[in-house]
Write a protein that binds this DNA or RNA. Structure first.
Length: 419
RNA sequence: GGAGGGGUGGCCGAGCGGUCAAUGGCAGCAGACUGUAAAUCUGCCGACGGAAGUCUACGUAAGUUCAAAUCUUACCCCCUCCA
């Protein structure tokens, strides 16, 4: 075993470790159960997405090993916007938007961490509770005096902006002081000694560590995880339709599953370590797998991640949809599956609605032109037959008949013909 | 406050009076190949229209012109520099 603490051993083995302050001390510190560690997140959207997943799964691990996670939602700092490594300043949100975003994010977290009053139950805090009440002069005198501009402009996150001649407003420049102050607060009020975050948070985290050392003379710790990138070095978590959200309202469980089902070969095992509860020894065996066998591991990955994020019960429905859509051509039960888009067509409409109309009305295509182009390119199928004419009209069929209309291989629409 | 440089399609970025619905790259979509992946190749990628074509777009608003993303003026916004 590399470390004394079980948490560090597992976190490191699974690929959650990027860098930390005084690693040996953290290791000692964590040999005692019930330690507090926090993760802060700004609340710029009403759901978390795949990009947030690494630090949250890290917290989950922290909890599993008998420690107590603190989740800090940035009700206060979101009003500033973290400028680190961003080339566009964050939009300024209203209090109402922030409040509703916090609700959404809490909903996302519920299945991932156990909240409550027990010794290892997670705690939720909102930094608006203290940041909103700050007074400028006292803050400058008590906190600001510990920050050296010389040092601040040396941080990678700031330096990058300065060198690129990007504007960095004073508002944004203050972000790191506030995040440092959060750490100070959480230490003073809860005894929280560790801050987790993505590697891009390093500068901000260090500010907090240094503030506590200077102000209170205590040593607290920072621990960062690598950013989630694909094997090709791309930031992970984006798809055609936008971010891979954790909220069911923004991305169906079926689409969430599909995201993991379709990851790059080279990423499968790494993601398995990070985002499943499978034993490390189990996953180790997968490292040598290749070819078609790897393809089936992707299903396992998709199952496991989806089970953690959306509950194992959601898998049945997803599997049913997948089976019907891809693995056999029967569409008899497809109508029962909530994951698939449906479109009702009256018998009378069969003769006066073209495929183009249907594609547009069902939102499969954004415009008639797009629908026509897609047809011209051979991307539209009805019951697995390519159609080549934009004026194709579905045949009149008996009541209750169904046609399966596909745009490419991934988007499907079930047309129910009714009277 | 002064001086200078900019604002072009999802992003980057050319164009600087007609041939511009706007070169190129990225991203995206579809087809082929495959393992529902990657890579590769091919096609598409403002709206409406069967088409001819029409309309809406180059920060905003006026103007000059037969004709403006391109010229003029005002305004808005961004960036850089200032003993």
């Amino acid at each position: 075993m590399k470390y004394k603490s079980s948490f560090l051993n597992e976190a490191d083995a699974r690929g959650f470790f990027y860098q930390s302050t005084n690693l040996a001390e953290i290791d000692n510190f964590l040999t005692v159960k019930g330690r507090l560690g926090y993760l802060g997140s700004d609340v710029t959207a009403r759901s978390l997405h795949v990009g947030h997943l690494i630090p949250i799964f890290l917290l989950r691990l922290f909890q599993k090993h008998g420690h107590r996670p603190v989740v800090l939602v940035g009700g206060g700092t979101t009003k500033i916007g973290d400028p680190s490594f961003k080339n566009v300043a964050r939009p300024i949100l209203t209090d109402e938007e922030i409040a509703s975003n916090i609700n959404g994010i809490v909903t996302c977290l519920a299945p991932l961490l156990k909240f409550g009053d027990g010794a290892t139950d997670a705690i939720l805090v909102n930094n608006a509770d203290w940041l909103d009440r700050l007074e400028y002069i006292p803050f400058l005198r008590e906190i600001g005096k510990f920050f050296s501009i010389n040092r601040m402009i040396g941080f990678e996150s700031v330096k990058a902006k300065l060198e690129a001649n990007d504007s960095l407003s004073f508002l944004e420049f203050n972000y790191m002081l506030l995040q440092a102050y959060d750490f100070y607060k959480l230490y003073s009020e809860f005894g929280c000694c560790i801050q987790f975050g993505g590697q891009d948070q390093w500068g901000n985290i260090i500010c907090g560590v240094e503030l506590l050392k200077k102000k209170l003379g205590v040593e607290v710790f920072g621990f960062t995880n690598p950013l989630l990138t694909t094997a090709g070095g791309q930031k992970m978590g984006k798809t055609a339709r936008g971010a891979v959200w954790l909220s069911k309202d923004l991305l169906s469980t079926y689409d969430f599953w599909q995201y993991w089902r379709n990851v790059d070969d080279a990423d499968v095992v790494r993601l398995m370590y990070l985002f499943t509860d499978l034993e490390i020894s189990e996953i180790k065996k997968m490292e040598s797998v290749g070819g078609e066998e790897l393809n089936s591991l992707k299903k396992l990955l998709a199952d496991e991640v989806t089970a953690i994020v959306h509950g194992r019960s959601s898998l049945m429905e997803i599997h049913q949809t997948v089976a019907e859509l891809f693995e056999n051509n029967s569409k008899d039960n497809l109508s029962c599956s909530p994951s698939i888009l449906k479109y009702s067509l009256s018998k009378a409409d069969c003769s006066n609605k073209s495929i183009v109309d249907i594609l547009v009305e069902s939102n499969l295509c954004k415009s008639r032109g797009e629908a026509k182009r897609l047809i011209r390119g051979g991307g539209v199928q009805v019951d697995n037959c390519h159609i080549s004419e934009s004026y194709y009209v579905p045949p009149e069929t008996a009541d209750g008949a169904m046609l399966c209309l596909s745009c490419g291989k991934k988007k499907h629409l079930l047309i129910l013909i009714k009277n």
